[in-house]
Amino acid sequence: MNININGQSVAIVATSTSLSLSELLEQYNAQLPFAVAINGDFVAQSNYHNIVVSSTDMIDIVSPIFGG
């Protein structure tokens, strides 16, 4: 299925009937360190395995960047 990740439609393969956030992050090749929000809501790292992602979700994966 295609999922909106960081503002772009990304093809993700669900290996079972449901796709967990941790599977999605692995397929996206997210690089540490990062933090995640789904539909604008922060998701704690401890919940990555429990969260099921759907094709209508919008995922944000953020990393450190310079700032003032």
Partner: peptide, 22 residues
């Protein structure tokens, strides 16, 4: 030192260089 968070681009090294410097 101040810094921020922005969307990660895995193909652009995900900002690893900056993070290591900091």
């Amino acid at each position: 030192v101040t810094l921020s968070l922005r969307r990660q681009s895995p193909e652009k090294n995900a900002g690893q260089d900056f993070w290591q410097y900091i």
